Amino acid sequence: MPSTIQHAGQGYAIERFYSVPDDAWYLELAETDPPGRTFLTAIVADEDPDRTPTVCFDEQTGHRDIPYAVMTWFMEETAEEVRSSRGWMEIAPELLGMTRQLRLLLPGLTVEDEQYLPLLAILAELLTDDDLGTVLSAAYDMDPRTVRSDVAAVRTSPPGAVAELRALFASDGWTGGAAR
């Protein structure tokens, strides 16, 4: 569902979509009254820390006067996309590699998943409690306070589950990335 805004009798919409080949979110701004073609696009790469977000104008639509309120709204929406898609890239460099590997090896992990406690056991050996909360917050948008309180439960995690997860990580090239 596109986000919309009205300004001075003109409607504007932001259409969001993900481009798999680009590993990036696209936010496209267009007029809605009448429906027009996209004239402004923000591109937010979400997997490569070296690719910074960009904004570009469609040269084929020609000159456009974009009201300040509409441009501010578009840039606020873009900033939120950057925060939600790339916020994990802003953590300390020594934790970034680990965070990226976790996102690739265990995409979409939640605290309800059977791999959650074994993962905590593995990471608790490598990280301080604060860094553990930072990494899981960045990788999976988990509340760092919840993660820190769950570390106590790691002691009760079945050793077999931890060994299975270690084997999965080893087969997928897990390098860890950070040590205490």
Rank of each mutant, 00 (worst) to 15 (best):
D22Q: 14
T52C: 03
D48I: 04
L127K: 03
G176V: 01
P35R: 04
M98K: 09
E125G: 09
P34L: 02
T72G: 07
R166G: 00
L119S: 04
E81V: 08
S84P: 00
A152P: 08
D113R: 08
L29W: 03
R64S: 03
A30Q: 07
A69W: 02
A167W: 00
D58Q: 03
A153I: 08
E114I: 10
P158R: 14
I43R: 14
H63S: 14
P21L: 00
L102P: 11
A152R: 15
D23W: 02
T134D: 09
V44N: 04
D113H: 13
E31S: 08
T156R: 15
L40D: 07
T134H: 05
W25Y: 13
G173A: 07
W174Y: 05
F169P: 05
M89S: 10
A138G: 13
A121V: 15
L105G: 09
L126G: 01
D22T: 07
L96A: 15
A79T: 12
T4H: 08
D23F: 06
P107S: 13
T72M: 10
P144M: 14
A24T: 02
S171N: 08
L106W: 09
S3R: 15
D129L: 06
P21A: 00
V162Q: 09
S137K: 12
V20H: 11
E15A: 12
D130P: 00
A69K: 08
T175D: 06
E90W: 01
A42T: 06
A79V: 05
T32M: 04
Y140R: 12
I66F: 06
L120R: 03
E15F: 11
L123W: 02
E80M: 12
E31H: 01
E81S: 14
S137C: 12
M75P: 00
R145C: 03
L95Q: 13
A167D: 11
T134Q: 10
A92W: 01
L127C: 06
D46N: 14
P2L: 04
W73E: 04
F17V: 02
G62F: 10
E59Q: 07
Q101N: 11
L105H: 15
I5G: 03
T72H: 13
L27M: 03
L109G: 12
L40F: 11
A79D: 14
Y26P: 03
I66A: 01
W25R: 10
S84I: 11
A69D: 07
E59S: 11
D48R: 07
T78E: 05
I91A: 09
P21F: 02
A161I: 00
Q10G: 02
P2G: 09
V82S: 06
W174I: 01
S149T: 15
E114S: 13
D48S: 06
L105F: 14
P67Y: 06
A167G: 05
V55Q: 09
L40V: 10
F169K: 00
H63R: 13
A161T: 10
V55H: 03
A69H: 05
D141Q: 15
G173F: 05
L120S: 04
P93T: 10
V55D: 07
S85C: 05
V70L: 04
T146H: 15
T175H: 05
V44I: 14
V162L: 04
V20P: 09
P35K: 01
D22F: 06
C56S: 13
E125F: 05
C56E: 10
Y68I: 05
G11F: 03
L27G: 03
D50Q: 09
E77Q: 13
S85F: 01
D22V: 02
T99W: 10
A170I: 01
P21T: 02
E80C: 09
T41H: 02
Y18T: 14
